[in-house]
């Protein structure tokens, strides 16, 4: 892969995808949810001794789960037709007439679409900071700012993971219909029923239901999904799990247990690695198929 070709491919794809109305509709949804969540936190009853300056960070924590859902949907929708759509319409013939390796097309598209998702996420985050300023107020702006930027970067990474998954899917399948079915399956498996899957594994390998204090290997399984790994990474900058008893959405018991377990594979940095493995793994699988696909 050559840098110049990657950048050319990514820029073309960015210019194309950024003009998609779907992407802007979903970014709008992210912004609306940001306003709503900020409003809820501003109205919440907080436990005794909870530091007031920590309130804006609480908004970020409360949003983690919502963001991971929206970003997942946004990235899957933005990416699933990226390659199969060009194959079906024939515009891929214009690309393939140019000196691009197929790997450059694949990775260039991942980069371009991730940049588009990044813009959508930035729009959502700007709305979020505006509504925090209005509804909650900032007492220690600097402390909040680095957490905010950290969470933004983690969210772009999550967007990158799901964009990679959807663009990879798009490179593997040969019809739009299959692409839709595949990204719906990805959404269901990684977002909706991941916990159910891990519980099934537990019952097979350990027998019975998952106890209240599960073993570390089970916690590790639950953190293998991109959105769970994301929430783990976010806790680096938004350490909401250190305040058990807040009773907010998005702070599951497991987060606290992972925080307390001390196993290296449950650490935030390991979750970062998990996200990178998703990216690299899906690109490698997609390339092995796309490399020899009949694109005529």
């Amino acid at each position: 892969m050559r840098d110049h070709q990657l950048v050319t491919m990514a820029r073309k794809d960015f210019d194309d995808a950024i003009r998609s109305k779907t992407v802007w509709a979903l970014s709008g949804a992210l912004a609306l949810i940001a306003i709503f969540a900020t409003f809820r936190v501003s109205q919440a009853q907080l436990p005794q001794g909870f530091p007031q300056r920590f309130l804006p960070v609480l908004v970020l924590g409360g949003l983690t789960q919502w963001i991971s859902w929206i970003v997942c949907i946004l990235a899957l929708i933005a990416g699933y037709v990226s390659i199969v759509g060009e194959r079906r319409t024939g515009s891929i013939k214009l690309l393939l007439g140019l000196p691009f390796e197929r790997a450059e097309i694949l990775v260039g598209k991942v980069l371009g679409r991730t940049a588009v998702i990044g813009v959508g996420i930035a729009a959502g985050f700007l709305t979020m900071i505006a509504s925090i300023l209005v509804l909650v107020g900032l007492t220690s702006p600097l402390d909040f700012l680095w957490r905010f930027v950290g969470m933004f970067l983690a969210t772009v990474l999550l967007g990158g993971v799901y964009t990679t998954l959807s663009v990879s899917t798009s490179a593997i399948v040969s019809t739009r219909r299959r692409a839709v079915m595949a990204v719906v399956a990805l959404f269901v498996v990684t977002q909706a029923i991941w916990t159910g899957i891990t519980q099934f594994f537990y019952s097979v390998f350990a027998g019975g239901a998952v106890p209240l204090q599960p073993p570390s290997w089970y916690l590790f399984l639950t953190y293998l999904s991109p959105s769970a790994a994301y929430s783990r990474v976010v806790s680096l900058v938004v350490p909401i799990a250190r305040y058990p008893g807040l009773g907010l959405d998005g702070v599951p018991r497991r987060a606290v247990q992972a925080q307390q377990s001390g196993a290296f594979y449950l650490s935030e940095y390991f979750a970062l690695l998990v996200l990178l493995v998703w990216v690299v793994g899906s690109v490698l699988v997609a390339h092995s198929v796309f490399r020899n696909a009949d694109l005529g």
Partner: peptide, 17 residues
């Protein structure tokens, strides 16, 4: 492809560009 210019059959332009 570095040495070939192509006008393919049954292509489609990028309609948003």
């Amino acid at each position: 492809r570095e040495r070939v210019g192509v006008l393919p059959d049954a292509y489609k332009l990028y309609e948003r560009l």
